[in-house]
Design a protein around this nucleic acid. Structure first.
Lengths: 218, 218
DNA sequence: CATTATTTTATGTACTACAAAAGAAAGTAT
DNA sequence: ATACTTTCTTTTGTAGTACATAAAATAATG
């Protein structure tokens, strides 16, 4: 019944339209008000605390805080305990995100971003073993996400990294070698320099084409 | 220090490489092993239970379960307690998702999906007040997400709905009226029938153009 | 008036006790 | 001997008490 108390607390916070920084009633009062023991209230509060919705200090009581949207997400994103289906779903999600990035990137990118991307592809070493390949992928695509200037986005993508690695590994074990698209990272940088968002989307599609092919095969 | 215990439990589960369905040690044993009271262990367990990582039944003990990736997410996605910045980030995320959907949709869509989309646009009433407009948006774009056949995706989008409404409302309060793109839902359906993924992406871009313009203005 | 000491108060942790549920075991009847 | 019922037994779930700890509020002191 800690579930219920959690729900009640949530409703309470909503109803009273608390703003971040406001103080909450003390644990014992909440327990009395809800007709449960302080123990149960603490379990529920512990959950909200984990989600970053509240912050509690001794004596001062508890304060409503701005929840960290992605914090809770990170805790369950462990490829080891995810079903293969979910992993696959997240892999597709990542593909969709990369395909949709173009407009946001073009809206926000600066000259120095291009330079950094160029530097990243210049440091890429070809025909190396898998671990390094994955590193390159992360460096390049990670920079693309950062260029959106969207913090939630950036964190989201870094959370999806282990999932990505896992699926790439899985993909490898089937087809034997890492699939590489016709459009390289270097090509994408060139497109960013001279092309339009549509061109970049088309290039990214080519770059990711092996993954899309793999999807279709399944 | 429930934070710590939570972390420890998580490490423990990872180290022992438990599979869903396996039984966990009982609460008292965990408490003894970690050198804390059963109370603290319960707080940590309560968190994991909330995340869907474990499932506990009386007498039978606790079982490791497959976490519900998005369940925890839903709990904090309340526009009321989110900062304006985060809301904005999520709005952008939604735009990116819609722009990237094309390929997945084309890979999975069936004839009856088109029919349903057609039915949705046929029922749209023009020049109606805002609440209905939002309803149409949800019906149409929601169907697009469902056409991907990706459950995680579908749930993710339904979670983002309130965020979307909130931002649309905010957008309205600034520009005075709801911005509408040159490409309508009806046009998009037609593209799905006869066009290629690239055409759909271009159409979607036009459809969402007012939102992108709004982003640039900020 | 400033600074220090004391008190008060709310959270954090530990421990005990008991209710409830559900599997395990024992007992009984056909 | 098997099927059914009854009685343990065990483990989670809830309640309540006690005390440590930290920090704010208040009192005391120079």
């Amino acid at each position: 019944m800690a579930d219920l108390v959690e729900l009640r607390l949530r409703e309470y916070l909503k109803k009273k339209s608390f703003r971040p920084g406001d103080a909450l009633p003390k644990e014992q009062e909440l327990a009395d008000a809800l007709g449960v023991s302080r123990n149960v209230v603490r379990e529920a509060l512990s959950r909200l605390r984990m989600l970053g919705m509240i912050d509690s200090r001794k004596k001062r009581g508890m304060i409503l805080a701005e929840p960290d949207i992605l914090g809770s997400f990170e805790r369950v994103l462990d490829p080891l305990i995810m079903s293969k289906d979910t992993l696959h779903d997240l892999f597709e999600l990542r593909l969709v995100l990369e395909m949709g990035l173009a407009d946001l990137i073009y809206t926000r990118m600066r000259e120095e971003d291009i330079e950094e991307l160029q530097s990243i592809v210049d440091h890429e070493v070809y025909k190396v073993q898998k671990p390094f390949r994955v590193e390159h992928e992360i460096a390049f695509h990670g920079k693309l996400y950062r260029m959106t200037g969207n913090d939630t986005f950036i964190r989201f993508q870094s959370m999806l990294l282990p999932v990505f690695q896992y699926v790439v590994h899985y993909e490898n074990s089937i087809s034997g070698n890492t699939a590489v698209g016709k459009v390289t990272h270097r090509d994408l940088v060139e497109i960013l320099r001279t092309g339009e968002p549509e061109d970049f989307r088309a290039g990214m599609k080519e770059h990711l084409q092996p993954h899309f092919d793999w999807l279709r095969k399944k």
